[in-house]
C-alpha cells in the first residue's frame, strides 16, 4: 500500500472525494483535487512519458512543477505537469510519447 493511512505527526491525510479517471483507457481511482501524479503513483504507475529521441522513460522527479519530467496528455492536451494538476473525476490521462500519446494496445 503506497498511501499513508496514518502518520505519527500528521495523522490521517485529508483527501477529497474518491473519483474514477482513465489512464491510457483503463479506469483507475484517485482522490479529487490531489495531483494527478499522486493518484497514478498510488495506482503503481511509474512511467509518465517517453522522451522524443531516445524513447527513454520519465516519471515524477521534482513533484513541484519545475522539472516537467512528469508531463502527460490530459484530456487531449499534451505537456500537462501532472504533479501540480489536480485530479478531476472522469479525466482522461495518457502516457506521452514525445509530444503525442503513446499508442496503447487495448
Amino acid at each position: 500500500m503506497k498511501r499513508i493511512s496514518d502518520h505519527p505527526i500528521l495523522g490521517e491525510p485529508e483527501k477529497g472525494q474518491l473519483v474514477s479517471f482513465f489512464m491510457d483507457g483503463k479506469p483507475m481511482e484517485g482522490f479529487a483535487g490531489e495531483p494527478i501524479a499522486v493518484a497514478l503513483k498510488a495506482a503503481g504507475v511509474m512511467v509518465h512519458r517517453y522522451t522524443h529521441k531516445a524513447h527513454e522513460p520519465r516519471g515524477i522527479f521534482c513533484a513541484i512543477g519545475r522539472c516537467t519530467d512528469c508531463v502527460m496528455i490530459v484530456d487531449g492536451v499534451p505537456n500537462i505537469r501532472t504533479c501540480i494538476t489536480p485530479l478531476v473525476s472522469g479525466m482522461r490521462v495518457q502516457t506521452q510519447d514525445g509530444v503525442t500519446a503513446l499508442e496503447v494496445s487495448e
Partner: peptide
C-alpha cells in the same frame, strides 16, 4: 539517473507530507 524512481528529496517530502503517499 533519469529513470522514474530517481527523485529529489523535496519531491519525497511533497509526496509524503503534503499528499499522503509514500
Amino acid at each position: 539517473w533519469t529513470l522514474p524512481g530517481v527523485i529529489g528529496a523535496g519531491a519525497a517530502q511533497t509526496m509524503m507530507n503534503l499528499h499522503g503517499i509514500k
